[in-house]
Amino acid sequence: MITKRIIPCLDMTEGKVVKGIQFVNFRDAGDPVILAKKYDKEGADELVFLDITATTENRNILLDVVKRTAKNVSIPFTVGGGIRSVEDMRLVLKNGADKVAVNTGAFNNPKLITDCANYFGRQCVVLSLDARQVKKGIWNVFINGGTTDTGISAVRWAKKAVALGAGEILLTSIDTDGMKNGFDIELTKIISKNVNVPIIASGGAGRIEDFYEVFKKGKADAALAASLFHFGELTIKQVKNYLRSKEIPVRI
């Protein structure tokens, strides 16, 4: 049986892992390679690595960090941040990533998704979607590191991106990011219901029960968390043991 995935996220800037609240107020969380190795050992199902300022600073992703991190892990590894072309994607994959997340670059140029999917296969293309609630029950897509409201509904963009070739969606709620009050269940559920690719829910994990809820009520296929794991508040093993006790299939 396919299991639900627990994914630590390494948000990076200037070669360091950082963690913010609602996409601002970042604090240093340590060295990416050391963290990646630790999570691999502790039973993480995957890792996500996001160069969160690559787009806003208009530069390319830190390939050497990608390379060093990838050398030290034996689990799948998604890399995103500042991807604007098939060539960008090829370089990230060549340096050891298994999947590539596209966000602003794909929103501004949706053909990027199709081109990447045709070349590398759709399972390799992760749509990273940052959403914020603008009205009750309505979420918009935000780009440029969450700074720009596109005015486009998250559901609409998710469906379009999947039709274009995205094989998975990394869905981050800006509202719940770093707040530790639980994942955005409503947002996760509505996106999961509207597309037929796996959804990685992100933003808001604070208690062990939050993981259960996002799988059970939010219909997520994977749950991502950062500060909880980086700052040692919960271990991956604790989360998985808890989920198993609640009959959610996980790999232990």
């Binding site: 049986m1 396919i2 299991t3 639900k4 995935r5 199902d45 759709r122 399972q123 094989g167 998975e168 037929n196 690719v197 796996p198 296929d221 994977a222 790999r251």
Partner: peptide, 11 residues
């Protein structure tokens, strides 16, 4: 009945 692609750990 299931999402495509299959992504994750399976037995």
């Amino acid at each position: 009945s299931l999402k495509v692609p299959q992504i994750g750990w399976n037995t």
